[in-house]
Amino acid sequence: MPLIAPPHPETWLKVTQAGLFCEPGGFFIDPLRAVDRAVISHGHSDHARPGHAAVLATPETLAIMTARLGEGRAGATQQALRYGEVITINGVKVWLRPAGHVLGSAQIALEWQGSRVVVSGDYKRRADPSCAAFEVERCDVFITEATFALPVFRHPDAMGEIARLLRSAALFPERTHVIGCYALGKCQRLIRMLRAAGYDQPIHLHGAQQGLCAVYEELGVALGPLLPATVARKDALKGAIVLAPPSAIADRWARRLAEPVVANASGWMGVRQRARQGGVELPLVISDHADWDELLATCTETGAQEVWVTHGREDALIHALGLQGIRGRALNLIGRGEEDEEASA
C-alpha cells in the first residue's frame, strides 16, 4: 500500500482543444491537430492526423501512416513501440496492448505515480484474421470508444455473414458482388475471412484499396490473388467479388460492373433504415468495433472504477455502467468519428 494515495487521472490527463493531453508526459494521444509529441492508437484518419513533430506508435501503425499521409508527414521523427514493451516518458510509463481493431491498432496504457489509465482507441473483441486480438489490461480508469453503444447493436458472427455473401455469389453467378468497405482494415479483414472460408478466386479491388493491401502484405498479412477492378473488362467481373470504398459502390464508378449486387460491410448495416439509405442490396453486418455486450464486458473486465466514454452514444453506456456501479463520464473530444462513420465502422 502506498503511503500517499495515487493521483486521480483527472489531475494529469486532460481534454484540450487539440485532444487528450498527458500533462506530466508532455504528449497528446490521437491529437486532432499537429502537435510536438503524439502517441497514436491506429492508422484511421480521425486518429492519425498529419504533421506531428514526433510520433510514437506500433511499427505497423507507423508503416500505415507513412503510406497514407506520405513520407515525412507521418511524424518528422517516428518511434516504434512493440506491443508489451514499456518506455518511460518524463516519468510516465507507456506501453501498448493490441486493440483488435485493424492491423497495428493499440490500446495505450499510461501509468503515473501508481495511477493507471488505458485509452482504448477503437477496438473489437471478435476474431480478426488480419490483426492481433484484443488483450485486456487492468486499470483505474478505462477510456472507451462507444461507436455501437446501444443495446440494439449486437453483431452477428462475422463468418456467418461471409457465408451469406458466398451463398449470394452462388445464387447470382452472372452478377458482380461489389462490397463497400473501408480501405484500411475492413477491406483486408474481408479478404482474409473470404480466404478462411475457402474462397481462392482473385478478389478485385477499387484503386483506393490497393495501396493499403500492399502495405498489409509487406507487413506479413498474406491476402492471396488480388486484381485491380479498374482495368478489368466488364465480362471478367461477372461472378467476381469486388471491394470498393462505400462512396463508390452506388455511383458512376460502379457502371463498369456486371449487374452488381451492391453489398456493404459495416456494423451500421444491422439497422435496416441505415442499410436502405445507401441503396444496398446485401447488407453485411461486419464491424471492427465492439458491440453493446462487448463494450460492457470490456469495461467490467478492466476492473476500472471509472470509465470515460469518448465518441459515440455515451448516454446509453454511462447509464448502463451506472447500473453496474461503475462511474461513467462523457469525454467530449471534438472531431472524433467524423471521418465517415459509415465507412470506418
Partner: peptide, 8 residues
C-alpha cells in the same frame, strides 16, 4: 431497462 429501450 426502460431508459435503454427509450434511447434505442
Amino acid at each position: 431497462d426502460p431508459e435503454l429501450f427509450r434511447l434505442s
